[in-house]
Each structure stands twice: as structure tokens, then as C-alpha cells.
């Protein structure tokens, strides 16, 4: 109940402030006698906005780790520059040292041609200059989603980021994603991320004995059915959207754009039997209603999944359900929830 009141107050104030301000101005010119009513409602909306907003601001008051200091850049001699052909590019890597609990910035020089990606440059650094550098990668072609990191402050897949194009004055800054706990150097821990993904039951759920045990009842899907969810199934779980999400960065309990986009992906799948329960699962302030629609998640998504749109579509579906007189909350809910 508290959850619903909070959602109502938050969204009521977001809509209420512009609506009441507009009505106040219009009433001032057209019906001056009732303008004060809208002025009072505007004040009420502002107070509500303050109350709900302050919850957002002070939701998590995590102290900064005492021992976290950033050491100045130390330059490693450029041996690799002589090893390859091409232009020399300096890579400044923010490396987290778990033993000392500090972030050290180290600068390396590598030779780069127009095809060199940030990942291949990092592999070159590891192979020829500093084998203590920890990086995680697998496919090297933007499919596995393992090499997510910040390149010049922007969450990117290192394998899909061109080194020369990213270089600013011959320098590229690389740092680990910060919306995931950092394990070592550029390697982050994805346990929370996968837990959130798992929590939304990211699989087709069907209670169809005919399909399961018999020969008939195959779930056929038309191309029209397919386009409803197809782009949201392109997710490679690289975690870049979480790193860009301002809500996730300030409230780690937020389900996050990746998990929520997968809720929409399965809720729209005609083969899925969970239907409205999926939306009910994330109908909370740490679910869909926690999203502030900054849109940064969609901006950095390397696969065009557009999680921000998926969350807005989920919100619209939920509002549609609430406005439907035939919709019965008690019967349709029942999922674990976030």
C-alpha cells in the first residue's frame, strides 16, 4: 500500500506541477475568481514533489570508502609503440587495486591503426607491457557483452570502440564500469546484475501439457507477434545500460533497465503464459516506477534494445490495466516481485 501511495504521489506531483501551473495562468486571465484554487493545488503539488523527491535524494547514503584514493597517473615506458605500425596513442587506465583498495591511473602507449579497437589495444598492453592488467573479454566482436567499460567516461564495449576515433589529443581514458562492484582493474562483478535478471523470470513460462508432453499444441508465432518483442530480445547482458542509468547509480535496489526491458520482452511474447503477472512483478517503486526516463540506458545500448522505451511501455501497460474496469488486481497478481 505504501508503495502505491508513493507511486501515486510521485507521478501525481510530476503531472500536477505543470498542469496546475498552466491552469493557474489560464485561470488568471480567463476566470480570475478561481485562479487561487489552482495556485493552492500547485503549492500542494510542489510540497508533494519535495516529499517524494527527498526520498530519492536520501534513499541511499553510502559513505565514501576511506581508503579510496586515486593515485596520479604513472607513465609506463612505451615499448609497444616500436612493436607495431601506426600512430601512437596513450591509454590512461584507471586500475582498481583490491590489495591496496585504491584506484591507480596508469598510462601506456600503444601503436594503433585505423582498425585498432580499445580492446585490442588493452590486450596489446597486457601482452607486451604489463601482464598484471586484468580485463575480461571473449568474442571480440560485440556479441558476448564481456568487455563493457567506460571509454572516455562513456559506457562502451571495448571491442566495438575504435581507438583512434576515441582518442582526444592522442589520449584515451579507460575505467571500469561503476554501477557494478569493481573486482580488479577493469573487471566488474555481475552477481547483482544477474540476480536482477533472474528475478524477472527471463524465460517463456507456459502451462501447456499438450505442448510439453504431446505432439500437438506447438506455439506458432506470426511475424506480427514477433515484432512486438524482437528488439528487446537483442540484449547481450553487457551491463552498459546499468552503468549509464542515474537511478541505478544512486539506488542499487532499482531493478535496472536491463531486467525491466526483459520483463517487457517476455510480457509481449505471445507464447508466454505469465502475461500480466510479469508486469505486476515490477509494479513497484524499485521496479518500473523508479525509472525517471533520463534515457541514458538507450543511448549507450550497443544493440539498440532501447530499455528506456520498454520501461515506458510497461508503465503504459500498467496504467492501461488500472483503467480497465474488468481488471482485477487480486486475481492477476501473485508474482514474487522486485
Amino acid at each position: 500500500m505504501t508503495n502505491r501511495i508513493w507511486v501515486f504521489m510521485t507521478y501525481g506531483s510530476i503531472v500536477g506541477i505543470p498542469a496546475m501551473a498552466s491552469l493557474f495562468v489560464l485561470a488568471h486571465y480567463l476566470f480570475p475568481g478561481i485562479a487561487y484554487v489552482f495556485e493552492a493545488l500547485l503549492a500542494l503539488a510542489l510540497i508533494t514533489n519535495f516529499i517524494t523527491g527527498m526520498r530519492e535524494i536520501y534513499i541511499v547514503s553510502k559513505p565514501i570508502p576511506d581508503k579510496l584514493v586515486v593515485e596520479p597517473v604513472s607513465h609506463v615506458p612505451a615499448e609497444a609503440t616500436q612493436r607495431g605500425q601506426g600512430k601512437a596513442v596513450n591509454i590512461v587506465i584507471s586500475r582498481f587495486n583490491p590489495d591496496r583498495g585504491i584506484i591507480e591511473k596508469k598510462e601506456y602507449s600503444v601503436a594503433a591503426d585505423k582498425y585498432t579497437s580499445v580492446l585490442s589495444a588493452l590486450i596489446k598492453v597486457k601482452n607486451y607491457q604489463d601482464n598484471t592488467l586484468s580485463i575480461r573479454y571473449s568474442c571480440g566482436m560485440g556479441i558476448c557483452g564481456s568487455c563493457g567499460m567506460n571509454v572516455n567516461g562513456r559506457p562502451s564495449l571495448a571491442c566495438e570502440t575504435n581507438l583512434l576515433k576515441s582518442a582526444e589529443n592522442g589520449k584515451v581514458e579507460v575505467s571500469p564500469m561503476l554501477a557494478h562492484p569493481v573486482m580488479k582493474d577493469l573487471v566488474t562483478n555481475f552477481d547483482d546484475f544477474f540476480e536482477k535478471h533472474k528475478a524477472v523470470s527471463p524465460h517463456i513460462y507456459k502451462e501447456d501439457a499438450g505442448e510439453k508432453y504431446g505432439h500437438g499444441g506447438i506455439s506458432r508465432q506470426s511475424r506480427e507477434d514477433l515484432v512486438k518483442f524482437l528488439p528487446f530480445s537483442y540484449c547481450i547482458m553487457c551491463g552498459l545500460c546499468l552503468d549509464a542509468c542515474p537511478v541505478e547509480n544512486t539506488n542499487p535496489n532499482f531493478a535496472g533497465p536491463q531486467a525491466l526491458s526483459q520483463v517487457y520482452r517476455y510480457a509481449e511474447d505471445s507464447r508466454d503464459g505469465k502475461g500480466e503477472k510479469r508486469i505486476e512483478m515490477v509494479n513497484s517503486k524499485d521496479g518500473i516506477w523508479g525509472c525517471e526516463f533520463a534515457g541514458a540506458c538507450s543511448e549507450v545500448c550497443p544493440k539498440g534494445v532501447d530499455p528506456a522505451s520498454a520501461i515506458q511501455l510497461l508503465k503504459a501497460k500498467k496504467i492501461g490495466q488500472m483503467l480497465d474496469p474488468n481488471y482485477c488486481q487480486g486475481e492477476k497478481s501473485g508474482a514474487d516481485g522486485i
Partner: peptide, 21 residues
């Protein structure tokens, strides 16, 4: 592990990612 999630300062990172956001 270095876990700095939940800090207000993280919002400033958005300026480099997407100015509109």
C-alpha cells in the same frame, strides 16, 4: 570489491554520457 553505487556524485557522470539526460 570497490562498490561506489549509491552515491549522489554518480549523477555527474551522466554529463559525459548524455547531456540531455
Amino acid at each position: 570489491y570497490l562498490d561506489i553505487r549509491g552515491r549522489r556524485r554518480n549523477l555527474l557522470r551522466l554529463a559525459r554520457i548524455n547531456l540531455t539526460s
